[in-house]
Design a protein around this nucleic acid. Structure first.
Lengths: 201, 201, 201, 201
DNA sequence: AATGAATGAGCGTTCATTCAT
DNA sequence: GATGAATGAACGCTCATTCAT
């Protein structure tokens, strides 16, 4: 009963292309991947990719946006409902690692591939990245004000350390160390480590 | 008996090329940098680069090896002389951040550029990276055995988190956030945070 | 028995496409024009164009044929009714320039765009072009036999010069030099110049 | 004894490429010619062309500039030394046709191929073309003031007609009509025709 | 050793054309 | 007939690498 879709999208072709892109990018890296390889993996013609994405680079961008949108939505909607800063911090940790659990390819794309396009990294990812850091720093600050966290540690430094630690955990996991399913356990342990470190003496 | 390399090296041309490479790679990224640009920045002809390095990729590899060799030597020679695991962990932190302090370009190359060559990342950097992680994990393990660190946290996880946190700190610093000179302060704060987190209850 | 085309044509869609093509070709040139642009300007779908024309090139061909058919018909039907060679030559001049007067786009298509497809120029336009030249040469020859024109000038050369001159006049007019409405005046002046040059001493 | 050349140019590689380009462009047209075909015809690698020319389009531009520079130089240096307007007009005619005599390929490039790149035609060729027309118009005007030419014919119209006629003559010659060597004869006849037409009654 | 002109494989992207609906 | 999403062949250009000097 529906009229024609707004633009293309009848079949899940866009989705198929994105799914193919994660796989191929993860295996070969961004620059070493030819657009025609993504097309073949997606089962579409080379040109079809350009009906859905402006360029190879935009394909990577869209991938990132598409997969991370849940995460950002969660940050906006769910986090504020948690009562304390420690709970919120724990939630962020679970979320960032949970996003990747079971999606090794995606993990590799986000931790490694995304950094392969300098332009993309500086113009596109950096702002989102900074916003994410700011959100974490805000939680730390609130915890300090509420007396949950020791006040002598820079929230911004903490944010960067937390993000980096999670990224590092995901990176080694993606590159093949650590057993599958380990991310959940890692999340708990890291949260313990961090919250203990942040606790008042 | 001399440690000096077998070939070339008289004129320091190899060094000039490496120095130029750090600068140009940091500014433009690995893939976006043309070999001819490095040549021009080093004041040599394009072909000359190939007298000292087998390929553009090997140029990046060599850069990494050259700059990180101090760090590895330090790990082998100096660390064991420190009496306790906490002291050794603190030293590693100071070292990794200290390597980069004052060398923003190098920091960017190691935190960002190195990941731009997938092959390099997987074949070359990963082993060294793992060795580094193992060294950190060993310290944690020793600390746990000595009763300095709580025993319920995976040394390997800790290693990855520590490396990632330091890398994340360096990354944001390299990309322009945080004031210059902040790395030293960051090192102290992070060490406090970490050691408190690791301490026995 | 009807002269109307066998297929299609009811809706005047073919005409709409041709009209759109003149405009777009004139503005952007043959190669720089995308079929989809003509389609959009004509208000039809891309594929529709292929119901009326076999290819982009045939679109240009048809355009030429369609617009020039009047001219060729005129040459066959009206010219012979004129009594003298000078009168016929003057008529040809008025006709060739008159065809374009008020149709700047068409003028540009014929003087410039037509030459942009080498194949079209050599295989399609050349024969028609030669027929046209021959017709002019015939007039000159008749004039020489009738004693109206000096006999020492090659009719074929004259034909080429006349066509070229008219084409050159139209070209500069189409490209923006010379005021609108100038073509009629130009026709008269050029006819004076030519007939004087051809006259017996 | 000479030092290294200013930029490349040791061998006549630039010349070889231009020579090859005239031939291939003339045979296949601008758009239908692949850069690799020009390279092969010139006996150089594809990439070499880009050491001498910025783009395929600039190759055509350079061709035009290179070949027409003699003509422009002649217009500036020699024409003014001729005593009367009729002599100067005759000289222009001989020159324009003489440029092409014996260079059928060049003739085709100038009369046909040059018009195949719309951008080139409008941005590059048009100004030079207009300058050329102005030069011819100036001669006609001088002739009128000196009483050599009838005053009732527009110099600018005449210039366009002359250029067009010569272009048309060259075009048919280039496309295969008219015997070789005919251009010289054509020049004389056309000059007679034109000067008679311009003469005072 | 040093040079830098020359090489040529490689690839992102466009767009005329097709065809399932 | 009409549509427009899909196709995939085609090509200009770049740049790491080589090698004659």
């Amino acid at each position: 009963m529906s009229e024609t879709p707004v633009l293309l999208e009848r079949s899940g072709k866009r989705t198929r292309i994105l799914d193919a892109a994660v796989k191929v990018f993860a295996r070969k890296g961004f620059h070493a991947t030819r657009v025609s390889e993504v097309a073949k993996a997606a089962g579409v013609a080379d040109g079809t990719i350009y009906l859905y994405f402006k360029s190879k680079e935009e394909l990577l961008t869209s991938l990132f946006e598409d997969r991370v949108s849940h995460l950002l939505a969660y940050m906006k909607d769910e986090l504020p409902t948690l009562p304390t800063a420690p709970a919120r911090l724990r939630a962020v940790i679970n979320m960032q690692l949970g996003l990747l659990e079971g999606e090794r390819d995606l993990a590799e794309v986000i931790t490694v591939i995304l950094r392969q396009s300098t332009r993309l990294m500086k113009e596109f990812a950096a702002p989102q990245f900074n916003a994410y850091l700011d959100a974490i720093a805000a939680i730390v600050e609130e915890g300090q004000e509420a007396g949950d966290f020791r006040p002598d540690i820079s929230p911004s430094l903490t944010a960067r350390a937390v993000f980096g630690a999670l990224d590092g955990i995901a990176l080694t996991w993606a590159l093949g160390r650590a057993e599958p399913g380990a991310l959940a356990r890692a999340a708990t342990q890291f949260a313990d480590l961090l919250l203990r470190g942040l606790a008042l003496p």
